[in-house]
């Protein structure tokens, strides 16, 4: 029905698509909430919401960095590998205490981000290729450092993973704080403005004298640091370091969240709220299908449909 209506009014169609790209993700989340309230037993419980939020928190944190990279018309495939690297390094240095271990993780992650950023900004390699190298190599290094799953027994790490303030897990608080921070960076800082300008038109940004290379390198470093935070938090929750499988396919989940959230892959525009909602949408969709005992293959198909819809809405806007 809507299909025919759209076809007869092409002007309305672009407006509908524009609306869909910006707000469709929120509508999707709202719809899933309403449907679940009706059809899923025990959906409206604090416990359920806490579980969902804890599960989605690492994806949200990684997707925040991914949104920044995509805003520069790039992509970072190495985030999953950086999570694994963070898990390995945490296990290796936890003996010195949590804080020193976190510092070493930060150094490793910054190194990974610098490598990505330098390849993109100085060597001029396409982001997808530059970060592919670290996606493969990063997990390799993680496995060299820690060849197999290792249980961790550190009270500080354990409380980071399962502690809570006023019933809200640290994980959720950290993810929320980071989302607010990144949104602030995008909206209010010089860096954020320069990042968007570079993503929208790199030649123009260059001729306007912006520090294009520096901004790009910083973006990839921030993305890697956020992935490392997600890696440490996931490790803390598991109480074990698992470099073999931690963060597997995380790059795709993060890109999905960003794209579904209305951030175009062509750069120049970043929606942090949409990115968070995008991650939540996929999480709710998966949870809904699992709760109704549908096989995992259905989840994948449903995700694919959401992605196709998001890409269609983005394409319909025709940025240039």
């Amino acid at each position: 029905m809507t299909e025919t209506a759209l076809r007869t009014a092409p002007f309305d169609k672009t407006r509908v698509l524009a609306w869909l790209q910006s707000y469709g993700v929120y509508a999707g989340v709202a719809m899933l909430l309403i449907v679940n309230t009706v059809i899923t037993p025990h959906f409206l419980t604090a416990e359920n919401f806490r579980t969902q939020a804890v599960q989605v928190a690492p994806v949200v944190i990684v997707a925040l960095g991914m949104a920044l990279v995509i805003g520069t018309e790039g992509v970072d495939l190495s985030v999953g590998a950086v999570m694994a690297l963070a898990a390995s390094v945490t296990a290796l240095y936890l003996g010195y205490g949590l804080l020193p271990a976190l510092l070493v993780v930060a150094v490793f992650a910054a190194g990974a981000g610098l490598a990505n950023g330098a390849l993109v900004a100085f060597v001029g390699v396409q982001p997808i290729v530059a970060t592919l190298a670290l996606m493969v190599g990063g997990r390799g290094i993680a496995l060299v450092l820690l060849p197999q799953l290792q249980d961790l027994h550190n009270p500080a790490l354990a409380s980071l993973g399962s502690g809570a303030v006023a019933g809200i897990p640290y994980l959720i608080l950290i993810a929320a704080a980071l989302a607010l921070l990144i949104a602030f960076v995008v909206r209010r800082t010089t860096f954020g403005r320069q990042l968007l300008a570079i993503g929208d038109s790199r030649p123009a940004a260059q001729l306007a004298g912006l520090p294009v290379r520096r901004v790009l390198v910083v973006v990839y470093v921030v993305c890697a640091l956020l992935a490392a935070v997600a890696g440490v938090l996931a490790t803390a929750r598991l109480q074990a370091s698992d470099p073999t499988s931690l963060g597997n396919l995380m790059e795709l989940s993060a890109i999905t969240a960003v794209v579904v959230g209305g951030t175009p892959l062509t750069g120049g525009r970043i929606s942090i709220g949409g990115t968070v909602a995008g991650a939540v949408l996929i999480q709710l969709l998966t949870a809904t299908l699992i709760k109704h005992d549908l096989p995992p293959s259905w989840t994948q198909i449903a995700q694919a449909i959401v992605i196709v819809c998001a890409v269609y809405a983005a394409r319909g806007r025709g940025k240039r």
């Binding site: 010089t190 968007l196 300008a197 929208d200 030649p203 123009a204 001729l207 306007a208 004298g209």
Partner: peptide, 29 residues
């Protein structure tokens, strides 16, 4: 069109683009 304006940004942001560092304090615009 391709080397001057940043088409997706607003008039305001385009005007301020080059001068951003001097319109900012501690990195905040």
């Amino acid at each position: 069109k391709s080397e001057g304006i940043v088409p997706g940004l607003s008039v305001r942001e385009n005007i301020a683009l080059a001068a951003l560092p001097r319109l900012s304090r501690f990195g905040l615009v």
